[in-house]
Design a protein around this nucleic acid. Structure first.
Lengths: 269, 269
DNA sequence: GATTTTCTATGGTCCGACAATTGACTGACG
DNA sequence: CGTCAGTCAATTGTCGGACCATAGAAAATC
């Protein structure tokens, strides 16, 4: 009888069937659908700007409930792949992930993992020279004008308005990475810049002499970018960011901590 | 009558009240709650591993429906801040965002924005030298053993198994960035490595001589890491990645395209 | 022709119900 | 006493329906 055979195979252990199956993870329906739609969107079947089917159409097509459909759409929204609007002729339209969204996710990673200030500085050290190099090579006149404008504002605020100075500093780095005309590099570098502003604000860094030093370094980098001299821009950015890193190290050491141990972000309760 | 007064103010226009209000955007309830919970989690009120209230408790506490609560949880899940399990003593527990999740979001950004292969290479050029430098300085013996292992596998596969070689190549870079012991740098660098593997697979790069060149470069970097010579590791990584970039440029040019124009990922329909 | 009103398809929200899951608890059994 | 299977209960997963809010188009009005 089949029962006997089955019991035998279970007792003696049939290795062929139990080969590579560990614990089975049953995915949620919304996760399955999200992955499926994600594939379709990335494959180009739904170009940016095109509309997804309505929620009720998706209910019909998939056999899932509207609740599951909506959970799916929230996932895709969090991934930056769709935007949803209410009202007639509304619906979910395919979108391109924005810089801000990627920056936000890097933010969450850094804060959720309590990434150390040292790590942040190291990433910045890696990115900034390349940013400066590419900015010098690829900048437009508009990019240059914007950098000049921000640089002037920073010079003015260096002695009078510290919070403003720090914010404009991040704006400067954001404008610089935008001038590199490398979308991915821009998104990464600007995220790190804003993270460092936040960390610096908390740690109360940036004494007056450092601010003047930063402003001067920016002017020197700006000159290289005006001349479209990529190598010079890179060298100066390297020196700039290295000096800043050493200053931070000293400041943190003086405060009695280490950059490795201390997380960049304190609990902002 | 009040109607008259109201009509008057509308017709004559009262500038004081219409100062800075553009179009009002009404957020969804789930977005509001998601942001609120996100703040609480990042503030440290809910440390990783701790449990969020149950869905029904959140319904009671917020006054929202369970559907909205669940949409909120899907958002937090997509952000990597919580994991949700079914069953008794299940629920949503606070989690730390994983490397894989950040890599996935960078993936979505790169593919959704059709980032060019050139941009990818540039980012890699920026990250890799710093990765090598830090790996040499911070590596453990376990890191070293893993790198040696992968390097040996790559040497073996270089002439016989191309797909295997490419995959192990990405593994090597991932292990290298892990050895840097900089979480953020590791997440960024390994994401880019895997993106390039995918792009290379599609473009059918990596001819035999290039594979041998890559394997040799890895051995040289590995030597510097064994000796904990950070500067040497960085220099060699710079040369390695630069050579690879030039090779790609030549290969793409030979194929009749440009790295700037061509997106790294073709529609995989 | 410009303005206002009406219409209606769509997402936003809520409620209630049941199924599926999962870990603790319980008790029989050896 | 330990082991094992069965029971139980709390929680998420899923479904269906209903109604409200929104926002454009289209029609009606001036």
């Amino acid at each position: 009888m089949t029962t006997l055979i089955f019991m035998n195979s279970a007792a003696v252990a049939a290795p062929t069937m139990l080969d590579g199956l560990g614990k089975i993870r049953v995915p949620k329906s919304c996760d399955v659908l999200a992955e499926k739609l994600q594939e379709q969107i990335l494959s180009g079947a739904y170009p940016p700007g095109s509309s997804l089917p309505t929620e009720r159409e998706l209910v019909l097509a998939t056999g899932l409930s509207r609740g599951s459909i909506r959970e799916t759409l929230r996932i895709l929204e969090a991934q930056g792949l769709v935007n949803t609007r209410a009202g007639r002729y509304g619906g979910s339209v395919v979108a391109r992930p924005t810089d801000e969204l990627l920056a936000n996710h890097i933010n969450l990673f850094a804060k959720g993992r309590q990434v150390s200030l040292r790590s942040l500085v190291e990433v910045r050290q890696a990115l900034e020279p390349m940013v400066a190099y590419l900015a010098a090579r690829n900048r437009t006149d508009d990019d240059l004008a914007e950098l000049r404008r921000i640089s002037a504002v920073m010079d003015a605020a260096a002695l009078t308005d510290v919070p403003r100075f720090l914010e404009e500093n991040a704006n400067w780095h954001t404008a610089l990475s935008a001038a590199s005309h490398n979308e991915l590099l821009h998104a990464l570098a600007s995220s790190v810049s804003w993270l460092m502003v936040e960390a610096s604000r908390i740690e109360n860094f940036a004494s007056e002499d450092v601010r003047l030093l930063v402003a001067r370094a920016h002017r020197r980098i700006l000159e290289a970018i005006e001349a479209k001299d990529g190598d010079a821009a890179r060298r100066r950015a390297e020196r700039d960011v290295l000096a800043y890193a050493k200053y931070l190290e000293a400041a943190v050491a003086a405060a009695g901590g280490t950059m490795s141990s201390a997380p960049a972000f304190l609990a902002a309760g």
